[in-house]
Nucleic acid binder design. Structure first.
Lengths: 121, 121
DNA sequence: ATTGCTGCAAAAAATTTGCACGAAA
DNA sequence: TTTCGTGCAAATTTTTTGCAGCAAT
């Protein structure tokens, strides 16, 4: 059975509170505030397990390390600013994507990232 | 000035002929047929340079190593099969994505990946 | 003849794993 | 008390870099 350790709770809390996708290192930085001595291996182990059970989802962008976000945050997409590189959530979604696939292909899901200038840049 | 070496030509040819995004290792496998002794470092150096000058584009998918494809292959998107994991090109494109961004954000580009079952799976 | 490019091997960077100990249940 | 989870360090895996020699101009 899964145990409730201080480390696991701190990592989950970090993910809950983050309003944006976090790098593994950022998770360590945040959760490490709550649990001094927290190891990066523990962070990786927990992130991996949470991705596998669907609690988290991986967000990957070209040339960057994987980020992690809540998996049940509802279906949404991302916007990366070409200027400041920050990643923002977008909660709207185009509805007509299935028709883009070639004949014979069944579309089950999709991923969309917009690039441009954020409000502040 | 940039020199035309056998290695560089073989790598470019591999990218031209690939009908799909290739892993660095796959580029080595293909170009290595033409240039025996070709080193993985040379492949990485050339891929990186080509991404920087826009000749190539990086295609990243969650949990996988980066792939590379021609950058001037026209704007297009990708479909990954949930069954066989292969990646296909999609040459159609939704046109109305700019409106998805929050107010104050300017959309300059976008990336779309569909997931599902390919024709053969 | 220059000097950019390559291969090799070592170095970095990112992630995973083995193991003994500590802590949930 | 049982055994899962953790920290640490070592091992992998992926990518980058230093350097001496080779090759394109």
């Amino acid at each position: 059975m899964e145990r409730s350790t201080r480390q696991r709770l701190a990592i989950k809390e970090a993910m809950q509170n983050a309003g944006r996708p976090l790098l593994a290192q950022e998770v360590l930085d945040v959760a490490g505030q709550t649990v001094p001595g927290l190891g990066i291996a523990t962070v990786y182990r927990n992130l991996k397990a949470m991705v596998e059970d669907g609690t988290l989802r991986q967000v990957v962008l070209p040339g960057e390390n994987p980020r992690f976000e809540l998996g049940n945050h509802g279906h949404h997409h991302h916007f990366q600013c070409n200027q400041c590189q920050k990643v923002f959530d977008i909660h709207s979604c185009p509805s007509d994507l299935a028709m883009l696939a070639p004949k014979g292909f069944r579309v089950e899901d999709h991923d969309l990232t917009l690039y441009g200038r954020c409000k502040d840049c």
